[in-house]
């Protein structure tokens, strides 16, 4: 990289790069906040982070730029995606506010804070940019290493301890110790008999030809969906698809058709047409 990249007066190239990529970063940040699905938010954030990595490089922080891509976008965002998958990738959040006045307060605080920050930066006398050319003379990584292992060696050691603690903490939080012997199948069936519910196996989910059917509730004889037929996790995530309305419509059409065959009552043309299509 050339000296002038980090100098006070930046090149036109950098200005162009700033305005283009800066816009991308702001759009990414905004969509992180306003996307309904967590997956989309995560992908937008990853985009913003890559833009930031480029800015790091542009500001002479070569090591940090690479680390930003490898560690942040590569590892941390992937971790986010894993958790999103675990919690339910297709679940869409409602953006409707439930706490009274929260949104207005948040906007007020956000705008106020932003204005204050902007005012503060504008007010500060930030005219003199030294550039990192001098500091990076022996190479950016070497310079960082010299600082980390001399001046910041204690902070460095402590962050090491922090990382280990975090790893152990994550294990403690997510690990669930089995404190009792798991019930055998016989004991489970005996318990079911004792409690007097669901003696037979749970009913199978319903069938819908166009999809894998595990997310579709089976219908009871009267046409209403049965909660028992789908997995609890899907129910909790709100990922069930209710096809009962359609099934009921089909049922009604079938009845009409049979009545028509038996020539009991005159049938409306629209229904008749649809019934004929279905019969073909």
């Amino acid at each position: 990289m050339s000296q002038q990249f980090a100098a006070y007066a930046t090149s036109t190239g950098e200005a162009f790069q700033f305005w283009v990529l800066g816009t991308v970063a702001v759009i990414g940040a905004l969509s992180t906040v306003f996307m309904k699905r967590a997956v989309h938010s995560a992908l937008s954030l990853a985009g913003t982070m890559i833009v930031l990595a480029v800015f790091y490089l542009a500001n002479g922080a070569y090591f940090l730029g690479i680390v930003q891509i490898v560690v942040y976008t590569g590892a941390i965002m992937m971790l986010f995606l894993f958790v999103v998958m675990l919690v339910g990738v297709t679940a869409a959040d409602s953006l409707k506010e439930t706490i009274k006045g929260q949104r207005w307060l948040a906007l007020l605080c956000g705008v106020g804070f932003g204005v204050l920050l902007f005012a503060g930066i504008a007010n500060a006398s930030l005219k003199n940019f030294d550039g990192t050319g001098q500091a990076n003379a022996n190479g950016n990584v070497q310079g960082l290493a010299a600082l980390i292992f001399t001046k910041y060696v204690f902070a460095f050691e402590i962050t090491g301890a922090l990382l280990i603690t975090a790893a152990v903490g994550a294990m403690v939080l997510t690990h669930r110790e089995r404190t009792e012997r798991p019930k055998t199948q016989r004991e489970q069936s005996e318990q079911r008999v004792r409690e007097g519910k669901h003696l037979p196996p749970l009913p199978a989910p319903g069938v819908y030809a166009r999809h894998n059917a595990v997310d579709i509730a089976g219908l009871l004889p009267d046409g209403t969906p049965s909660e028992l037929t789908v997995s609890k996790t899907l129910r909790d995530r709100g990922q069930l698809r209710d096809v009962s309305a359609q099934a009921l419509g089909d049922l009604r059409a079938l009845e009409q058709r049979s009545e028509e065959r038996l020539e009991r009552t005159p049938v409306e043309p629209a229904n008749l047409k649809r019934g004929e299509e279905a019969s073909k």
Binding site: A29, T32, V33, A106, G110, G114
Partner: peptide
Amino acid sequence: LLFTIGATGVLI
């Protein structure tokens, strides 16, 4: 700007 957007997101 990014900081403010993030903070507002946390609140919303």
